[in-house]
């Protein structure tokens, strides 16, 4: 009886018509019995109390949120392409990609992007050379060797390192790292790629360490047990079992670090200077793609000029480079997984 009442209530709440109200009756033995079920509407209705409206609108809202990121990406690419078409109507694509001189603000202007690309690559590779080994070793120490008390300290130190504003790294490079380097290498310039590599390297250590540590940490304990059960030492288990199992995370961390180094702006602008040069001498001043964009954006270059348009082209190249690294990362990670 109670159950039947509940059903009827639910049915009316659904806004559907209720069938014969006298659904319960007393049978010949005088026992209350249900002869038929009340009619309950199972049809879709947008305002049902089960939250259909909420569900629907939430779905549209979430879809709109997701769509906004897609639209933003296309919007940015569209603007970049629009400004680029103006640029390439004056400068030939060939000259842009093969030219070894980049003097956009001089007259006659030269728009060969290679010096900027080399500058960016120097910083990206140089800083990874510093950050990848250190980050990996920190990750291994943290997950396999670190005593529990020290782990907390080390992790917070890394988080702190990641929280330092990049501009601080920039002037530290200029006012601290370069003078120290000058003691060892007297020929070093005031603005130089090496000090920028060092600080950008320090900057991306937390990224590499924490992503790699997560990957190592997620290697199941039973694999370690298996290794110990075979009488292996910890370093053997770490190097032959745990690290190979975590390698996709390690590769991902390198790529993340690389992307960050490529996109890094403030520290390299301050530390490495603004002399676009096709060089691989780390003691010299160079200019990265990002530093060039800062230089032009900060100056009073009028919109619509070729110099102004050049930053969009350089920006687009940066975009392609980071996209490229991410795609390579995905490919590598998939290959590794496939092999295992």
């Amino acid at each position: 009886m109670g159950l039947t009442k509940l059903n009827l209530k639910a049915a009316s709440a659904e806004g559907s018509s209720i069938g014969d109200p006298s659904l319960t009756s007393v049978d010949s033995h005088g026992v209350a019995a249900v002869h038929a079920y009340p009619q309950v509407s199972l049809a879709r209705s947008w305002n049902s109390p089960s939250g259909n409206f909420v569900e629907q609108s939430l779905q549209y809202f979430l879809f709109a949120c997701a769509l906004s990121s897609v639209l933003t990406t296309f919007g940015i690419v569209f603007i970049l392409l629009k400004e680029m078409s103006g640029f390439f109507s004056v400068v030939s694509v060939w000259e842009f990609f093969t030219g070894t001189q980049w003097f956009p603000l001089l007259s006659p202007a030269r728009f060969g992007v290679l010096p900027l690309v080399s500058g960016t690559l120097m910083i990206a590779l140089g800083s990874c050379l510093i950050a990848v080994p250190i980050g990996l070793l920190i990750a291994i120490f943290l997950s396999e060797y670190c005593p529990r008390g020290f782990r907390v300290i080390l992790k917070s130190a890394l988080e702190l390192l990641a929280g330092i504003p990049t501009v601080v790294y920039g002037y530290l490079a200029l006012t601290f790292v370069t003078p120290q380097l000058a003691k060892i290498f007297p020929q070093i310039e005031v603005f130089n790629a090496l000090s920028a590599c060092i600080v950008v390297g320090i900057m991306i250590i937390p990224t590499i360490a924490s992503v790699t540590e997560d990957a190592i940490h997620s290697v199941p304990g039973y694999l370690r047990d298996a290794g110990y059960g075979l009488g292996m030492r910890r370093y053997q288990i770490v190097s032959s079992i745990v690290f190979p199992a975590a390698i996709s995370g390690f590769v991902a961390s390198i790529i993340l670090g690389l992307s960050r180094a490529i996109g890094e702006t403030m520290a390299v602008t301050l530390a490495a200077g603004a002399s676009p040069k096709l060089t691989f001498n780390f003691f010299e001043s160079i200019q990265t793609m990002t530093a060039f964009i800062v230089q032009v954006s900060q100056g009073d270059t009028p919109a619509g000029t070729i110099e102004y348009q050049s930053i969009f082209v350089v920006g687009f190249c940066l975009f392609i480079m980071t996209l490229g690294t991410n795609l390579i990362a995905q490919f590598v990670v998939r290959r590794i997984h496939h092999r295992i």
């Binding site: 298996a226 290794g227 059960g229 075979l230 079992i241």
Partner: peptide, 20 residues
Amino acid sequence: PVLVRRRIGMVFQKPNPFPK
């Protein structure tokens, strides 16, 4: 203890082959 485990082997509850 490592030398002990080399002479006293162990097989675990859940099969745990290496990803090799």
